[in-house]
Simulated assay, not measured.
Amino acid sequence: MTDLMHVFLVTNAGTESGRRIARDLLLAGHRVVVTDISATSLVRITHGYSSDRVLAIAADTSDSDQVRRLIERAESRLGAIDFVVSPDGVSRRYQQSNSLAA
């Protein structure tokens, strides 16, 4: 692991492009939180990685209560989230006051 390692939150990670983004980030040495409405779509991403590198959380990112719990759980496990990435290629630095909507 390097000093350049960040924590990324990949939304809609159950899609093919979401899985690809998450895997690329993991291969680059980052810690990754993946989320989608269904946990079953996230299993393929976590396979082969330790729990200190990847965390899968099923959540509806349009629901502010679920987002709050998602962030709390992710940050307690992997540390502060640095970036939020969506499969459509939008990436932005995460700020505590932000919602997950782009």
Rank of each mutant, 00 (worst) to 15 (best):
Ile71His: 00
Gly29Thr: 05
Thr11Asp: 08
Leu27Gln: 13
Ala101Met: 14
Ser17Ala: 12
Leu27Pro: 05
Ala101Lys: 13
Thr2Ala: 12
Val33His: 06
Ile45Asp: 00
His6Leu: 09
Arg53Ser: 02
Arg73Phe: 00
Arg53Asn: 05
Val54Pro: 03
Asp65Pro: 01
Leu4Lys: 11
Arg93Val: 15
Gly29Ile: 03
Glu16Tyr: 07
Asp60Asn: 15
Leu70Glu: 07
Arg73Asn: 13
Ala102Ile: 13
Met5Asp: 10
Ala101Thr: 10
His30Glu: 08
Val34Arg: 01
Gly79Thr: 13
Ile45Gly: 02
Arg92Glu: 00
Tyr94Leu: 08
Arg68Met: 04
Val7Asp: 06
Asp88Glu: 10
Ser99Met: 13
Ser50Leu: 13
Ile21Asp: 08
Ser38Pro: 00
Met1Ala: 14
Leu55His: 00
Leu27Cys: 09
Val84Lys: 13
Leu42Pro: 10
Arg73Glu: 03
Leu78Asp: 03
Asp52Glu: 11
Glu16Gly: 06
Ala39Leu: 09
Gln66Ala: 01
Arg77His: 15
Glu16Lys: 08
Asp63Thr: 12
Pro87Glu: 14
Leu27Trp: 05
His6Cys: 11
Asn12Trp: 06
Thr61Cys: 12
Ser62Gly: 09
Ala28Val: 04
Val33Leu: 12
Val85Ser: 12
Ile21Lys: 05
Ile37Tyr: 11
His30Phe: 07
Arg73Ala: 01
Gly18Gln: 04
Val7Tyr: 04
Ile57Arg: 04
Ile71Asp: 02
Arg53His: 06
Thr40Leu: 10
Ser38Phe: 11
Glu72Phe: 10
Arg19Ala: 01
Ser86Phe: 10
Ala13Glu: 07
Asn12Met: 09
Leu9Met: 12
Val85Asn: 05
Val34Ile: 10
Ser62Lys: 04
Asp3Gln: 07
Arg23Asp: 08
Ala58Tyr: 04
Val10Arg: 02
Leu42Thr: 04
Arg19Glu: 01
Thr35Gly: 00
Ser17Phe: 02
Ser97Met: 14
Ala39Lys: 05
Ser41Gly: 11
Thr46Gly: 13
Ala56Cys: 05
Thr40Cys: 11
Ser97Tyr: 15
Thr15Ile: 13
Thr11His: 01
Leu26Ala: 07
Ser99His: 14
Asp36Gln: 03
Thr61Phe: 01
Ala56Gly: 05
Gln95Ala: 15
Val43Glu: 15
Val84Gly: 11
Thr15Leu: 09
Val32Tyr: 04
Ala13Ile: 01
Ala59Asp: 07
Phe8Val: 05
Phe83Gln: 08
Asn98Pro: 14
Met1Tyr: 12
Ser91Asp: 10
Gly79Met: 12
